[in-house]
Design a protein around this nucleic acid. Structure first.
Length: 115
DNA sequence: GCTTTGACTCTCG
DNA sequence: TCGAGAGCCAAAG
């Protein structure tokens, strides 16, 4: 059956689906911020975005590891910040450090913006 | 239907 | 430069 690759057995709020959809648009080797996601949604619900990503049942289908804070730091991650940094580095993204205070090197260069 | 919480962001002191 | 507080939106209890 030609359906979505994501599992839809789980009940997902419409807002979350919107967030996941935007996140999946992020190309490999790029990252985005909660603010950009909220902007892509048309509002400033970066808080709700965080909740949506935190409740993301589609991981790693949805590249939640490509979402960082607006100041360039990786922020917090349920799967382990270190894990995410490793993953990002595997995609060619340079990160300075290995903790939540770690900042993305060339952040502006790898930042994916939603219009 | 109201209150609390959250993987956030911004401004002020 | 660093720290604390307020603001924002949506989902869950």
């Amino acid at each position: 059956m030609a359906k979505e690759n994501i599992k839809k057995e789980i009940k997902i709020p419409p807002f979350n689906q919107k967030v996941y959809r935007l996140m999946r648009q992020i190309p490999r080797g790029k990252v985005t911020t909660y603010q950009q996601l909220a902007h892509g949604l048309g509002n400033r619900a970066y808080r709700a975005v965080g909740n949506a990503v935190g409740s993301n049942p589609f991981w790693p289908d949805v590249p939640c590891h490509r979402v960082v804070k607006a100041n360039g730091t990786v922020g917090k991650f349920g799967s382990g910040t270190k894990r995410k940094i490793k993953l990002l580095r595997a995609e060619g993204i340079r990160i300075d450090g290995e903790n939540k205070d770690s900042k993305i090197a060339n952040f502006d260069g790898v930042l994916f913006k939603f219009e």
